[in-house]
Amino acid sequence: RPMNAFMVWARIHRPALAKANPAANNAEISVQLGLEWNKLSEEQKKPYYDEAQKIKE
C-alpha cells in the first residue's frame, strides 16, 4: 500500500522525535507525530501530498 502524505512526512520526522523522547514508545511517538502534523498548514503539507501522489503513480 503506498504511503499517504502523513506517512511521507512522518518517515522524515520520526527519528528526530524518537531521539528527543527516548523514553517514548512507538505508539506515543505516533500520537505526537499526529499532533505535530495537524498543526501544519495546508501549504506546509502540500509537498508531502505531492510526494504521496508521485508514489501512487
Rank of each mutant, 00 (worst) to 15 (best):
N38H: 08
R1T: 12
L17C: 06
S30G: 08
S41T: 13
N25V: 03
A52D: 02
N25W: 03
E51A: 15
I55G: 04
E42A: 12
I55M: 11
A27Y: 15
N26P: 12
G34N: 14
E28H: 05
M7A: 09
M3R: 07
A52F: 11
K54N: 07
R11Y: 11
M7P: 05
W37R: 00
I12W: 04
E42L: 12
S41D: 06
Q32L: 15
W9H: 01
W37P: 00
P47N: 03
I12T: 08
H13M: 14
E42G: 06
I29S: 01
Q44L: 05
E42I: 10
L17W: 07
R11L: 14
P22F: 03
Q53K: 13
E28L: 06
S30I: 14
M3N: 10
P22G: 03
E57T: 13
G34L: 15
E42K: 13
W37N: 00
A23M: 14
N38K: 12
G34S: 13
M7Q: 13
S30P: 01
E42S: 10
K54M: 08
A52T: 03
E57L: 12
K46Y: 03
N4A: 08
E36L: 15
N26D: 15
N26A: 14
E51L: 15
K45R: 10
P15N: 08
W37A: 00
P15A: 13
V8A: 06
A16W: 08
A24G: 03
G34V: 15
Q44G: 05
A5D: 01
A23Y: 12
A27S: 10
G34Y: 15
L35G: 03
V31S: 07
Y49V: 06
I29C: 02
V31A: 13
L33G: 00
E43K: 10
R11A: 14
I55C: 09
V8I: 15
I12P: 00
I55Q: 10
A10W: 05
Q53P: 02
R14W: 14
E43V: 08
V8R: 07
R1P: 12
Y49Q: 05
L35R: 09
S41C: 03
H13K: 06
A10D: 07
P22L: 04
N26W: 15
L33Y: 00
S41Q: 03
Q32K: 12
M7N: 09
K45G: 00
P47R: 05
A24L: 15
A27P: 03
L35D: 06
M3C: 15
E28M: 10
V8C: 08
I29H: 02
P15D: 10
K19R: 13
P15K: 11
E28A: 08
E57M: 11
D50K: 11
M3V: 13
E57R: 12
S30F: 14
A52M: 07
S41N: 08
W9I: 02
A24D: 02
A23V: 06
K39T: 04
E36F: 08
L40N: 00
V31C: 12
M3S: 10
A16R: 14
S30K: 09
L35A: 07
S30Q: 12
Q32F: 10
E42Q: 10
L40Q: 01
Q44M: 08
E43D: 12
M7K: 06
K46H: 05
W37E: 00
I12M: 09
P22N: 04
R11C: 15
Q32W: 10
K45Q: 06
S41Y: 02
I12A: 09
L17H: 03
Q53H: 08
K56A: 13
R11W: 09
Y48F: 11
K39L: 10
E28T: 08
S30W: 15
N25F: 03
H13V: 10
W9P: 01
A20M: 11
K46F: 04
W9K: 01
V31Y: 14
K46G: 04
L35Q: 09
V8F: 11
S30L: 15
E51P: 02
L17K: 02
N26C: 13
K45F: 01
A5T: 01
K39M: 09
A5M: 01
K45E: 00
M3P: 09
E42V: 10
K46C: 05
A5S: 02
K54D: 05
V31Q: 10
A10I: 06
A24E: 03
D50Q: 09
N21I: 04
N26M: 11
V31L: 11
M7I: 10
A16V: 13
N26V: 12
Q44C: 06
Q44A: 11
K19S: 08
A24W: 15
A18C: 10
P15F: 07
Q32S: 05
A18H: 10
I55E: 07
R1M: 13
K54G: 06
A27E: 11
I55V: 08
Q44V: 04
H13R: 13
L40T: 01
W37Y: 01
I12N: 05
F6H: 01
G34Q: 15
A20F: 04
I12C: 09
A24Q: 04
A20Y: 04
L35N: 08
A52K: 02
N21A: 04
Y48L: 01
L33I: 02
P22M: 03
E42D: 13
A24K: 11
K46Q: 11
E36R: 08
A18M: 13
M3A: 12
E42R: 12
E42W: 15
A27Q: 11
Y49W: 06
K39H: 04
Q32H: 05
V31P: 00
I29N: 01
A20P: 01
N21Q: 05
N21T: 06
E43W: 08
N21R: 07
Q44R: 05
N4D: 12
K54T: 07
W9V: 01
I12K: 09
N25T: 15
Q32V: 09
A23C: 13
E43F: 07
E36D: 06
S30M: 15
R1E: 14
A16H: 11
L17V: 11
K46E: 04
Y49R: 10
R1V: 12
A20T: 07
I29W: 02
A52V: 10
A27W: 14
Y49I: 09
R11I: 12
L17E: 01
Q53M: 11
V8Q: 04
K39A: 09
